[in-house]
Design a protein around this nucleic acid. Structure first.
Ligand SMILES: [Mn+2]
Ligand SMILES: [Mn+2]
Ligand SMILES: [Zn+2]
Ligand SMILES: [Zn+2]
Lengths: 153, 153
DNA sequence: TTTGCTAATGAAAACCATTTCCATTTATAA
DNA sequence: TTATAAATGGAAATGGTTTTCATTAGCAAA
């Protein structure tokens, strides 16, 4: 249910947040992009269509979106946070990442997600019971060298 | 083989790094601690025994250790990097994390269900073949609310 | 042991992503 | 339309991390 074009509006109000032009445009950029954008990159894209947006508002909106579970914040090791919408209805859907520690390239993958999903379900259940921990989300990243960076060795 | 008390010395030299007092003390702190220390926390602990250490050197040493695979750098969302030695011979050994998004508490777990280890192996193999990606390490974190933070709701 | 080369170091300054401050604007319910 | 509090933008502050540079120290060779 989270974040399709018809859902976020309602979810926003539920949580007591106002729907503003800036927030709409930020969500629009996030849902349309295929990359892993930083706050500044999001700001620049929004700014193309809506010049009065401020970088501060971008940061604040990203916080809001993450706090209500519509957005996931990543640290890929390049010194700035990067963001990706959480949307099961998105063509990308939930996926995990391969992170090249050399060139910082990010590879999305969801090929093996079936088995992984099954295991994740089990693991999450076991963990939440043992540690009385309420799991809301997870992060799985594999670090190493992409094919190109293996060659330059 | 990475990082037992007898191994890191050799690995250091192999990689062309000099063995210095500061580096020894930093490694000592890292191998003895049970927590997830930040650069400043490491600096303070080392400083107790070796006053002439500088924070800059701590940062530089942490980079070196991470680059040769003796140390893993984490982002738990509290605005600073945190570090943990990678050491199979350590009493803690390889483990994953539960991260409370409310109080920032970190729970280590290594009581993997059997399938978890096996699936990881399979996944890593499949991914490295399909994407020609050489996997060196992985990061698995579950985000949510710890038992205490569930109550304060 | 001594020497020479170069990596390593510490302190201060710079960097820069993110946050805070605050005066102004705007969404929204009445 | 109005009142009220949330949201906003720009400037300044913050603070973790990196860079700079003059000095120190590890270590291979003699
Ligand atoms: Mn992705
Ligand atoms: Mn841990
Ligand atoms: Zn690469
Ligand atoms: Zn908690």
């Amino acid at each position: 249910m989270p974040c399709n074009k018809f859902g976020w509006h309602g979810k926003f109000k539920e949580c007591g947040y106002r729907v503003t032009v800036g927030r709409k445009e930020i969500l629009d950029v996030l849902t349309k992009t295929t990359g892993h954008l930083s706050a500044e990159e999001i700001y620049l894209k929004v700014h193309e269509k809506y010049q009065s947006i401020g970088l501060t508002t971008v940061y604040r909106t990203l916080d809001v979106l993450a706090s209500i579970g519509l957005l996931q914040k990543f640290d890929f090791g390049d010194g700035r946070a990067r963001y990706e919408i959480i949307d099961a209805t998105n063509e990308k859907g939930h996926h995990h990442h391969l992170v090249c520690t050399e060139c910082k390239r990010i590879i999305d993958y969801k090929d093996f997600i079936d088995e992984e999903v099954e295991l994740l379900r089990k693991t999450e259940k076991a963990l939440s019971e043992k540690y009385k921990f309420e799991i809301k989300n997870h992060l799985i990243q594999f670090y190493g060298l992409c094919s190109e960076c293996q060659e330059h060795r």
